[in-house]
């Protein structure tokens, strides 16, 4: 899995590329936590356009970051999941707590 990370103001944009499963969960969790801390990110935008697979280990990382960010009054927004990834997100209930947007600009617009 490759990970593109960009900080814009107080929002961290994360663009993983590949598959989010047990094999990459620890690395993803560590990188996100370090980056959130270092950049003092309030909000998190997770662009899933290039994620071809996710299972409950990958979702666990997203849920953990949601808990962390929302505890500090921030938001977690999901951008552009592929259909097979969206199905898993939907079944997990995560789309009920994280809003979904078709692109990063719309997500950024919602953060204000």
């Amino acid at each position: 899995m490759l990970l593109d990370i960009e900080m814009k103001k107080d929002t961290l944009f994360v663009r993983p590329n590949g598959e989010l499963d047990l094999g990459v969960a620890d690395q993803l969790r560590r990188t996100l936590d370090e980056t959130i801390e270092k950049g003092q990110a309030k909000n998190l935008v997770i662009n899933l356009a290039k994620v071809s697979f996710v299972d409950s280990s990958g979702l666990g990382v997203l849920l953990g970051r949601y808990n962390r960010v929302s505890k500090n009054g921030g938001q977690v927004l999901i951008v552009s999941p592929q259909p097979q990834v969206r199905k898993v997100l939907d079944l997990s209930g995560l789309l009920r707590i994280m809003n979904e947007y078709p692109n990063e600009n719309e997500a950024l617009g919602k953060i204000g």
């Binding site: 409950s56 979702l59 666990g60 990382v61 849920l63 953990g64 898993v88 079944l91 997990s92």
Partner: peptide, 15 residues
């Protein structure tokens, strides 16, 4: 049994 996990593994398998 793990706070960072969703506990949905069996739900996905069954679904």
């Amino acid at each position: 049994t793990d706070a960072e996990r969703l506990g949905l593994g069996f739900v996905f398998m069954q679904s």
